[in-house]
């Protein structure tokens, strides 16, 4: 019984720590983000003004990235119809690597290809995944380094508060 209580306490603490990891952005103005998607279509962050944008930097070799993707899908479903989009920026892998990955993992949010690492450098990303929450005016409001369960109430609430 004691072990069970300890286990539940640990789980509770772990989820609290995850929620606290969402940090208020203090890095100044939003860096540029202009990349092609997997189909070669050029996209810019400015194209999404008026929406909350989750910009996630990820790679197929990164286990926490893969672990959090289903929760991003659930988050997207919970916010269906709301001005919210996910842009998943792949960190310098080939189109083939990403397309092979998508045959195994079911995601339907936009994937951008940072082939030469320029966006990664401009956004100063050192760890995969790293996620930025951008408000409808195009300003970064929160940042999180490492994986998360994005449909948990703590994150959902922050995102809902950012919606116009």
């Amino acid at each position: 019984m004691k072990k069970l209580i300890l286990f539940i306490s640990c789980l509770f603490l772990l989820s609290s720590v995850q929620a606290q990891d969402l940090k208020t952005w203090k890095g100044g103005s939003t860096p540029p983000l202009a990349l092609n998607d997997l189909n070669g279509k050029p996209l810019k962050l400015q194209d999404y003004r008026g929406k909350v944008v989750m910009v996630q930097f990820w790679a197929t070799y990164c286990p926490p990235c893969l672990k959090e993707m289903p929760s991003m899908m659930r988050l997207q479903a919970k916010l269906a119809g709301k001005p919210f989009v996910i842009l998943a920026v792949n960190m310098g892998e080939t189109e083939k690597e990403v397309k092979d990955f998508l045959t195994r993992v079911n995601v339907d949010f936009t994937i951008l290809m940072d082939s030469d690492g320029k966006a990664l450098s401009a956004w100063k990303v050192f760890v995969a995944p790293s996620t930025f929450l951008v408000d409808p005016k195009g300003n970064i409001r929160y940042v999180l380094q490492g994986g998360a369960e994005w449909d948990e109430p703590e994150y959902l609430q922050k995102i809902v508060e950012m919606l116009p």
Binding site: W25, G27, W123, K124, F126, S130, I140, V143, L144, Q145
Partner: peptide, 8 residues
């Protein structure tokens, strides 16, 4: 430990 958005 480097943080996202902050110069390393």
């Amino acid at each position: 430990k480097p943080a996202p958005g902050v110069e390393a």
